[in-house]
Amino acid sequence: MRGYRGFLREFARTGSLRALVLQVRTGIAHVARQWTGRNEVGNPLARFFESYGPDGIRPASAAERRLRLASEACLVCGLCSAACAEAGGRPLLDPRDAVIAAARLSLDLRRAGLEGLAASSCAACAACDPVCPQGIPIHLVQESLAARPGSEPPQGAPDSGAPAARDARGPGIG
């Protein structure tokens, strides 16, 4: 068993007898289980999601992760809110608040069962995007908040080929 020697060295320095007994017992059970193949029950990843689903944990799609990285560049300057107001937008969350909420609160929103409410009234007119000094595709952030858990990422999310942000500055917009 690889690495057992390293473990023994460390253990010899700090371990207690009681710990050793427990470890040997669990170790024997572990080896026995491996031999009988009882470890192979079900897909562990499915088990993980089953167990952590109620906490809102789900894998982020590549598009979501690029969007999150782009959103990190936010300067909280509020220009997007002004553009949204001029365009007559009435989203439940101001675009500025949506960018803040997007990745910081996504988990809490899901846990509280509130996801999907957050941006339900954003018209996706994208008036907010061109005024962002950091080039964050803000209307996509609104869309990603509005998306229901497990749904597909919003259409038009940054292309997977290009790096999403350079030096965490946000993607260039062509």
């Binding site: 300057c77 220009l79 962002c132 000094p133």
Partner: peptide, 9 residues
């Protein structure tokens, strides 16, 4: 222009 820059602030 990539964005409005510091003038907008």
């Amino acid at each position: 222009a990539a964005g409005p820059g510091a003038t907008a602030l």
